Measured scan of single mutants.
Amino acid sequence: KTVEVNGVKYDFDNPEQAREMAERIAKSLGLQVRLEGDTFKIE
């Protein structure tokens, strides 16, 4: 899975870890996480 923030992509081998990281980043920035294919987009 991939986490994308402001056009910057971070790859994770563990999908659960990617989801947790995406949620943590989104919460700290006051944004939403949206799953698009294999990418968690933070917008």
Rank of each mutant, 00 (worst) to 15 (best):
K1F: 15
K1P: 08
K1G: 10
K1L: 11
K1V: 13
T2S: 14
T2W: 13
T2L: 07
T2N: 08
T2Q: 09
V3W: 02
V3P: 01
V3G: 01
V3L: 06
V3I: 10
V3A: 01
V3E: 01
E4S: 10
E4L: 13
E4R: 05
E4W: 13
V5G: 01
V5F: 15
V5D: 01
N6G: 10
N6C: 15
N6E: 07
N6H: 11
N6A: 08
N6D: 10
N6M: 14
G7T: 02
G7A: 03
G7Y: 03
G7R: 03
V8D: 05
V8F: 11
K9N: 05
K9W: 06
K9Q: 09
K9G: 04
K9S: 09
Y10H: 07
Y10V: 07
Y10F: 12
D11K: 15
D11W: 15
D11M: 15
F12Y: 08
F12Q: 01
F12K: 01
D13R: 08
D13I: 08
D13M: 09
D13K: 09
D13C: 14
N14A: 07
N14R: 07
N14Y: 08
N14L: 08
N14E: 09
N14C: 12
N14D: 14
P15L: 11
P15A: 13
E16L: 09
E16H: 10
E16Q: 12
E16G: 08
E16T: 09
Q17Y: 08
Q17K: 12
Q17L: 13
Q17P: 02
Q17N: 08
A18L: 04
A18P: 00
A18G: 02
A18N: 01
R19A: 09
R19P: 00
M21K: 03
M21L: 10
M21T: 10
A22P: 00
E23Q: 09
E23W: 09
R24E: 11
R24Y: 12
R24W: 13
R24H: 11
R24D: 07
R24A: 13
I25R: 00
I25C: 14
A26P: 00
K27R: 11
K27V: 10
S28M: 14
S28E: 15
S28C: 15
S28N: 10
S28A: 15
L29A: 05
L29K: 04
L29W: 06
L29H: 06
G30F: 03
G30Y: 03
G30W: 02
G30D: 05
G30I: 00
G30T: 01
L31S: 07
L31Y: 08
L31R: 04
L31F: 08
Q32Y: 10
Q32D: 09
Q32V: 15
V33N: 02
V33W: 14
V33I: 12
V33H: 04
R34L: 09
R34M: 08
L35Y: 12
L35F: 10
L35W: 08
L35D: 06
L35I: 13
E36S: 05
E36H: 07
E36T: 05
E36P: 00
G37I: 04
G37W: 04
G37Y: 06
D38S: 08
D38Q: 07
D38K: 05
T39C: 15
T39F: 05
T39K: 06
T39N: 07
T39W: 03
F40A: 02
F40C: 04
F40T: 01
F40S: 02
F40W: 15
F40I: 08
F40K: 00
K41G: 01
K41H: 12
K41R: 10
I42S: 01
I42G: 02
I42M: 05
I42A: 02
E43T: 12
E43D: 12
